[in-house]
Structure formats: C-alpha cells, structure tokens
Computed example of a mutant assay.
Amino acid sequence: MKKRSRGKNLSSAEKASQAIDEALRENRKSRGTREEVLILGAPGSGKTTLMRQLRIIYDPYTEREREDFKPYIRSSVLHALRQLDLLLPAETPSILKILDSSPTETLVLTEAITTLIHDWWSRPDIQNTSSHLSLDPSTMHFLDRILPIAAEDYLPSDTDILFCHIDPSPALVQLDIPFSEETRYRPFLHCTCVRQSLRSIHQWLPIFGEISHAIFVFNLNHHDDVEDTRKTFDLWECIYSSRFTRFAHIYLIVNRPSTFASKLTRHPLNSTYPDAEPDISPAAAEAFLLRRFAERDYSGRSSWGIPRWTVDLMDTEGVRVIMRNLMDELVQTRLVTVCGL
C-alpha cells in the first residue's frame, strides 16, 4: 500500500493547524536559542580561567590549539621566575643571575638552561624558603613541570593552559556553550569576556547594553590588597547600578576559597579592614567581604538576593557543577520572563 504524501488530502483546518505549529516552532527558535552572558571582574579575579574552563568542559582544545599555547606556556616559566625573584630574600641565590638573564630578556629553554632551573628549584633551601612565600599557584606549577615543558614532544595539558600567562591578554574572548542536556529548554550561552577597566567603563559597557546575564568574578585572595579590592568594589558598583545593565540578571562567583584560609593566617582580615573581628574564621571572613558588595548597591533595583557560588576556578569539576546551577537559574529566569511564573 502506498503511503499518502504528507500534506495531501488534509482539510483546510488541518492545514491551518500545521501552519500555526510551524510558525510557533520558528518563533521559539528565534526567541529562545541564545542567552547573552557577560563575564566581568577586576584584573586577576579569574575571568580568563573561567573562560578557559568553559572551553575545556564544553569544547575541548584541539591538538593544534594546544600547540599554539606552547610559546605562551614556556614564557610563563620566565614569568614565574621573575615573580619568584622579586619575593625571595636578597641573600637567596637569584636564578636570573645564575642564568645570566635579565627579567626583560626572552628565555629559551635549552637543555642546559632547563637543567639549571630544575636543579636550582630542587634545592632544599629554595624549596624551604619558597614554602613560606605567598606564591601564585602558577609559579609553583610551571617550575615543578619545567622538565616536561622543555621536552621536544611536549603538548600542554588542560592545567598548563589554565595557568598559562598571556601578556597582554586578548581584549575580547567569546565562546558559545550548549545548555544542559537534562533540560528541555536548550538554547546556547554566548559568553563574552572583555578586558575591562574602571577608567574605560563608559566606553565598553554601552556596547553590551542588551546583555541579559552577567557573571561577576571575585578573588577572595585579594583581600589583603586595599587598592585592588577598592577597584573591585568600584567596578561592581558601576556595573550593578548602570542603566546599561538594569535589565540584566547578575550572578557572583567567589574564586579561590581553597587558599583563602591559609592566607588569612598570614594576612588577617582586620589588618586590612579594621572593623573586622580579630581571628575571624574563613567562613565569617568570606561573609564579611560579600557584605561589601551589598553595601555598594545604591541602585535600589532589588534587595540583596543575587545568586552566588564559591568555587576554586582551577577545579574543573567544581566549575562544571557551578555551570549546571547557573543554567538552572537561567531556566527559572526564562520561565518568569516568558511565562510570568
């Protein structure tokens, strides 16, 4: 028996119903397939790490892209040596002097230079002194991995890419990521990370005036730098109270809880904030800092109920969980906006 051709022998009412269904499908596609997300935060907050994590989770780097990172990762070794050289006591042998290299020169990881760096970093006195310094985790990571990084067949790992230092950083990074497979509502997130500054906010923020969602990243470990935290809260205030983001849903990601507790022992919170209680616990210290965000809300746009999550952005699984939670928030937001629920 021959099958009837689709659309033949349908009544006018059935044809009209099909046309309406098709129009509704097209309308849903045009309205609900893209959510704009702007990634914001002060320099060093973790914005770049978050964007790289999203690539690792949703669109893994290809072998060619990993090859492209190799020069930056090897230059990150020199960056690590410079940072360490600034922090080590004057009586400690300087690795840059041992290499007969100034901080402005390019370091070529020959076999001889790699051996010198490895042997110097392995010295018990250097290890003991470094353990008492406030080193950035990337410094220790690259010096610990100096031998594999210098190898001819080296291909950067995900962790190498996450720690990689690129100077200057790209002015704009964009990434499309799919929505959670667990939900029937499946648009994609168009994430944009712009290299922002407080001085140029009047130039770059209007460009994203139609943004629907913004993630603000805050690094807990910057609590001991008064100037840095001031810039963070000033940037937050400008973004949160701006007329260009008045319709945006804003989320807060609190970065670096893993090292916050140990840093508090070296730099107590009340040494920076006199109104903080002495010997405050890490949880109470985090709550104290988060209240600073609420205190900068002069907009009157809403009560302080911004969704926020605390996560170490170097933890891929932690970021994966945060993104699932964020997607759940976006679904709820869309239901309220579209359906009035």
Results as ranks from 00 to 15, higher is better:
I126N: 08
T129Y: 03
A171K: 14
S122M: 08
F188K: 15
L143N: 08
L78W: 02
I161L: 02
D176H: 08
L135N: 09
D100E: 06
C164A: 12
E181V: 15
D160C: 10
L162E: 11
Y185S: 13
D153K: 10
L172E: 13
V173L: 09
T92K: 07
S138A: 13
S75L: 15
S122R: 11
F188E: 12
P124Q: 00
P170V: 13
L78N: 08
P103I: 03
S138C: 09
E105A: 14
P178S: 01
E182S: 14
L189M: 14
P187Y: 03
L172A: 14
D85C: 04
K97G: 03
P137R: 05
I166Q: 11
I117T: 12
P187W: 03
S102K: 04
L162A: 03
P93K: 03
R123K: 12
T159Y: 08
R184M: 09
I161P: 15
S102A: 14
H141D: 12
T139P: 10
A112D: 15
T192P: 05
H141N: 11
S75H: 13
D125G: 08
I166M: 09
T92W: 04
R82W: 01
E105W: 04
C164K: 12
A150N: 00
R145F: 05
L162F: 02
S131M: 01
C164F: 08
D136P: 01
D160N: 00
E105R: 05
D100M: 05
C193M: 14
L172K: 15
S180N: 10
T104I: 02
R123W: 00
L96P: 07
L155G: 07
S94W: 02
T114L: 01
